[in-house]
Amino acid sequence: MNLDLRIPMGLMFTLVGLILTIFGIATNGSPIYDASLGINANLWWGLVLFVFGLTMFLMGRRSEKRLAALPPEPEEPGEVRRGH
């Protein structure tokens, strides 16, 4: 495939996670969390998204490296010919 989606997608969620986590730390204990039942939703959900994004990103990078290491595939994808 041309562009592995996991790389930009992972990057986006990593950044969103990072933003939420930092914002969550900065606003810890603030009355804005009355709405979310006293839970620091930004901090916790930011961490979850950060881990998810990073995992995606690393998976994408790994498969890209693996593909680059392989010899170039013959053209005509989708037409898997099996000798029989």
């Binding site: 939420l20 969550g24 606003t27 709405a35 979310s36 939703a41 930004n42 959900w45």
Partner: peptide, 11 residues
Amino acid sequence: LHFFPTGILGL
């Protein structure tokens, strides 16, 4: 609007 504080609300 009811549950999300600013930050995650943007999300």
